[in-house]
Simulated scan of single mutants.
Amino acid sequence: MYRGNQIKTAALLGLLSGILVLGGYWATGNEQGAIIGLIFAAISSFGSWFYSDKAALAAYRAQPISRDDASELYDMVANLTKKADLPMPKLFVVPTQTPNAFATGRDPNHATVAVTQGIMQILDKDELAGVIAHELTHIKNRDTLTQAVAGTLGGAITFLGRMLTFGALYGPVSRDNRQGGNPIGVLILVVLAPISASIIQMAISRTREFSADRGAAEITGNPLALASALQKLESVGKQVPMNGNPAFEPVLIMNPFSTSSLQSLFRTHPLTEDRVSQLQEIAKQQKNYTTMTLN
């Protein structure tokens, strides 16, 4: 699993970095745009690797907590972390009533789990344990790095597109009396590049969520508790939208922004009913295995 996620992360870096470099070249019509794109790719890649946890936590105004602040939550995470054979992550609470959670960090030794105030209020102990186990699986599979790379480079593509578009439209006139760069490149950066980045993120994100749900079921031995939690999160989340940077949407356990039919085409998470169906099937398999063992 770890090696597979390493390959996915490398592919994601390469594809998104390539979009930055080629888009910059086509937008300006010369090597200068490609160099600008390459610089953005290098800075974004390093930043997403080293500062991913800080960026995500800042985006949702998460606050650190210790065992003295929330002993029950801390002990629950410590117990699940031990079962998952992971180092104890840092714990944060997001000051919002929207029920959600996420994990971040470049590796298990620099990991963070964050939960919202809302999720602790609407979920029972078993359901919350399922959510925490889901996030710990993301950490164990190194998904947190993939999430950070996707969000950071996706944002860089959008920002670079706007910057180079301005230069293409209002930049100095060239020797052949053309102002700015290639209009096709402008189109690529303004429209096609962000869409391509989103598609790349979604291709990895949806598979990753299913995998994390399976991992949570293995850690807790209670897949139906997580299924119940997901249903509650979707129901309440629609009533209390979560404010934050959409670029970090993939790190959350539940899609908090996409509500319209058009937006649902670009979901970073699988449909909740599909995730619940998978967890129910896992529960049946666990029950059949227990029955066979007892017999």
Score class of each variant (00 low, 15 high):
residue 256 P to Q: 01
residue 282 I to H: 00
residue 76 M to E: 06
residue 2 Y to W: 09
residue 41 A to R: 05
residue 66 S to R: 14
residue 136 L to N: 00
residue 281 E to V: 06
residue 2 Y to H: 07
residue 169 L to T: 06
residue 112 T to M: 06
residue 102 F to E: 00
residue 152 T to C: 14
residue 247 A to Y: 08
residue 128 L to I: 10
residue 199 I to F: 15
residue 273 E to I: 08
residue 204 I to Q: 08
residue 3 R to P: 05
residue 278 Q to T: 07
residue 191 V to S: 10
residue 83 K to F: 01
residue 105 G to L: 06
residue 194 P to E: 14
residue 213 D to L: 01
residue 188 I to Y: 06
residue 193 A to L: 08
residue 50 F to H: 08
residue 185 G to V: 07
residue 5 N to K: 06
residue 238 K to I: 10
residue 82 K to I: 02
residue 157 I to N: 02
residue 71 S to F: 09
residue 64 P to M: 05
residue 175 R to P: 01
residue 27 A to N: 02
residue 124 D to K: 14
residue 199 I to S: 10
residue 33 G to L: 02
residue 265 L to D: 03
residue 123 L to C: 00
residue 223 P to A: 15
residue 169 L to G: 05
residue 75 D to V: 11
residue 246 P to Y: 14
residue 279 L to H: 07
residue 138 H to F: 07
residue 251 V to I: 15
residue 165 T to G: 15
residue 246 P to L: 13
residue 29 G to M: 04
residue 245 N to S: 15
residue 31 E to H: 12
residue 176 D to W: 10
residue 232 K to A: 03
residue 117 Q to V: 13
residue 276 V to D: 02
residue 57 L to K: 02
residue 76 M to V: 03
residue 221 G to V: 14
residue 158 T to R: 10
residue 45 S to Q: 04
residue 209 E to I: 10
residue 146 T to V: 09
residue 142 R to N: 11
residue 78 A to V: 05
residue 93 V to N: 01
residue 245 N to Y: 08
residue 101 A to N: 06
residue 241 P to T: 12
residue 123 L to N: 01
residue 173 V to F: 11
residue 293 T to P: 00
residue 60 Y to F: 15
residue 126 D to W: 05
residue 62 A to V: 05
residue 24 G to L: 08
residue 46 F to Q: 02
residue 233 L to A: 00
residue 287 K to Q: 15
residue 104 T to D: 00
residue 127 E to L: 07
residue 94 V to C: 04
residue 179 Q to H: 14
residue 178 R to C: 02
residue 139 I to W: 00
residue 132 I to P: 00
residue 103 A to H: 06
residue 2 Y to T: 11
residue 126 D to I: 03
residue 83 K to S: 08
residue 163 M to H: 11
residue 211 S to E: 10
residue 32 Q to H: 09
residue 31 E to Y: 10
residue 32 Q to M: 15
residue 284 K to W: 01
residue 32 Q to W: 15
residue 3 R to D: 12
residue 93 V to Y: 04
residue 172 P to K: 10
residue 146 T to A: 13
residue 23 G to W: 07
residue 41 A to S: 14
residue 251 V to P: 04
residue 46 F to N: 02
residue 97 Q to K: 09
residue 167 G to T: 05
residue 126 D to L: 09
residue 92 F to G: 04
residue 64 P to H: 05
residue 158 T to C: 08
residue 212 A to T: 04
residue 177 N to T: 04
residue 251 V to F: 08
residue 272 T to G: 02
residue 226 L to P: 03
residue 18 G to M: 15
residue 282 I to C: 00
residue 223 P to G: 11
residue 165 T to M: 09
residue 206 R to N: 04
residue 158 T to G: 08
residue 226 L to R: 03
residue 60 Y to R: 07
residue 145 L to V: 09
residue 189 L to V: 06
residue 38 L to Q: 12
residue 34 A to R: 11
residue 95 P to V: 10
residue 110 H to A: 11
residue 106 R to L: 05
residue 186 V to K: 02
residue 205 S to K: 06
residue 82 K to D: 12
residue 240 V to Q: 15
residue 76 M to R: 13
residue 170 Y to R: 03
residue 208 R to D: 03
residue 16 L to C: 06
residue 236 V to K: 13
residue 203 A to C: 12
residue 142 R to V: 04
